[in-house]
């Protein structure tokens, strides 16, 4: 790794800072925060600022992955298609510098959007609910950043791995659909075939590990751990899994003391693994590709 990673990352950020995409993204997330807070305040329910913050996790579960995938999926393949990668790699930056720099630059873009949305949430929380829960705010902000970073990493990894825009788009859409829409089919489906029934609350450990590694579930698990709230993961339900299991963390479903890898805090490790593996695969393919 050289200082050229930072040079590429700064160029990326400069470039993105001039793109309408970033500002549309910032606008969307800020709008979601503002509208959510206004709606809660208007409903006149007895809500604390901390609860309002957790409520923000509902739209973010859906929107942040989409936004992050959109920000990242053209990162590398876009330059391959346009030909600007020849200008870039004709200079000293290596393919390693390019992938890591792209990842950092695009992470910064999503970071700015999430950061601004959270500033709005903090200010509105103070104005509407008379509280500024700074610790909760920082912790939830960090978890949300990690969650967004996972999808940026998936998108950049895909972008580095493929040679056409169409394939990149198909793969990121596929990833999103697999995680949000088909997760239960992909995990509880095989479970059903193996055991003749869907996963009960106390499902087999391998199934709970898979649940632990669902990024959306990991996000709600971590959020609930820190905010002591009941943020429910938004996923398509197919009725394969026991209804009682909905909203339970893998640790709660494990009979007795959960092993380390099923404990709630371990969801952060699951997200970190998601952050690294797709980029590593994309990097591996990109360094071996004919451009």
């Amino acid at each position: 790794m050289t200082s050229n990673v930072w040079a590429v990352a700064r160029k990326e950020f400069d470039d993105a800072g001039r793109s309408r995409l970033l500002w549309a993204l910032v606008g969307l997330l800020v709008l979601v925060a503002a509208v959510g807070y206004a709606a809660l305040w208007y409903a006149d329910e007895p809500v604390t600022a901390s609860e309002a913050l957790a409520f923000l996790g509902v739209p973010l579960q859906v929107l942040l992955p989409i936004a992050a995938l959109v920000v990242g999926y053209m990162a590398v393949v876009g330059e391959r298609r346009s030909g600007s990668i020849k200008l870039l790699l004709g200079l000293p930056p290596t393919r390693t510098d390019v992938v890591l720099g792209k990842l950092l630059g695009r992470l910064a873009v999503v970071g700015v959007a999430v950061g601004l949305a959270f500033v709005v949430a903090l200010v509105l929380g103070a104005i509407l609910f008379g509280e500024a829960p700074v610790f909760d705010w920082l912790a939830f902000g960090a978890i949300t950043l990690l969650f967004g970073a996972v999808f940026v990493a998936v998108a950049v990894g895909v972008s580095a791995a493929v040679s056409t825009r169409g394939r990149a788009m198909a793969l990121v859409v596929g990833c999103y659909v697999a995680i949000v829409a088909f997760w239960e089919l992909l995990t509880a489906g095989p479970y059903y075939l193996l055991y003749g029934h869907g996963p009960p609350v106390q499902a087999a450990p391998w199934y709970l590990v898979l649940e632990q590694f669902n990024p959306v579930l990991a996000y709600t698990t971590l959020t609930n751990l820190v905010l002591e709230n009941d943020l429910v993961p938004l996923q398509f339900q197919y009725g394969l899994e026991s209804i009682e299991a909905a909203g339970m963390t893998p640790a709660e479903r494990y009979p007795g003391d959960a092993p380390v890898y099923l404990q709630e805090w371990f969801a952060s490790v699951a997200l970190l693994i998601w952050l690294v593996v797709p980029v590593a695969i994309g990097y591996y393919r990109f360094t071996r590709a004919d451009l």
């Binding site: 160029k11 400069d14 470039d15 001039r18 793109s19 346009s82 030909g83 600007s84 020849k86 200008l87 004709g90 200079l91």
Partner: peptide, 14 residues
């Protein structure tokens, strides 16, 4: 080496 590639593109926003 200084490179002037063929079929390159610039960064349109920079």
């Amino acid at each position: 080496v200084g490179v002037l590639p063929e079929g390159f593109d610039v960064y349109p926003r920079l």
